[in-house]
Every structure is written in structure tokens, then in C-alpha cells.
Amino acid sequence: MQEITAQEIIVPAKKDQIPVVTEFVEALMNSRGFDPQKTLEVMLAVEEACTNVALYAYAGKDGNQEGLMRIAAGIAHGKHRGMKLTIEDWGIPFDPTKHIKPISDAGAEERPIGGLGIHLIKSYVDDIKYKHIDGKNVLTLIKYE
């Protein structure tokens, strides 16, 4: 897959910044004529990935709650056109792909609150890869058109 276009934003790793990220993804995909349904799916996957970063990446790391996250979005060209999203943070090493648990069968009262995000990411992208490089968590999501 060849990547010829990439744009990026860097924002504080906070929940209130997530719409900034999803709007960035939406604007890029709209401008490149992606199907609106696929755009919503990618936005959801990116929101879930960024929510995890905002909630956990910097929690308790040297008492530093003010970390950043970087989101790069590229249009991948090749056999199939697609979106390639890279979500990076400098927080606690965490591989979300290793924390995919089966959806609980528990009723509402006993239902655990966490673990939904990674299921949604997995459901809505075609490829998900995690690496820890140079002190960074790097999560790469690919969605084909």
C-alpha cells in the first residue's frame, strides 16, 4: 500500500479534544469523497482509540495528566484505496489489541462498564496494529474503501 497524502493534528489527550480529532477525520474523508457511512465508522474507531488514550495513557505517569496525542490520517492508495490512521501517545505502554475480551453476557446490573471501545474499533476497521516505538504507543488503523 502506498501512502501519498498525510495530515496530522496534535491535541491534549483529553476527552473534550476528541471531537476536534473526529472532525479532522470527517473533513478529510469528506473532502476525498469517501462514503458517509464509512466515514462515520472510521470516526467511531478513532474516537474509541482516542478515548482510551484520554482515559488511561497518562493516568498516574509521573503525576503528569497533561500528555498529548498525535493523530495522523493518510489516504492509502494501491490495489484498494483506504484510510490509514495512526494514533500516538507518549504515555504508559498499552497494547489495546491484547485486551479484547468477549462481550459480557451479564445483565445490566452486573454489566462491566469498560472494554467496549476496542470491540468497536475491531469491528469497524479492516486492520489494527500496535507497536511501542521510541517511548510511544503507536496504534495504526486501516479502513479500505
Binding site: K15, L40, M43, L44, E47, E48, T51, A108, E109, R111, I113, L116, G117, L120
Partner: peptide, 20 residues
């Protein structure tokens, strides 16, 4: 509603747990 993320699901689940 055209879009709901897990944050929204949690809000609904939390409300359900309170009314049940």
C-alpha cells in the same frame, strides 16, 4: 441520532442501572 460512541452507551447503561 446518526452516531453513538461507547461514551454514549455508558451514559445509557448508567441510567438503566439507576431505574431498574
Amino acid at each position: 441520532v446518526e452516531y453513538v460512541s461507547s461514551v454514549g452507551l455508558r451514559v445509557m447503561l448508567a441510567a438503566l442501572k439507576k431505574v431498574k
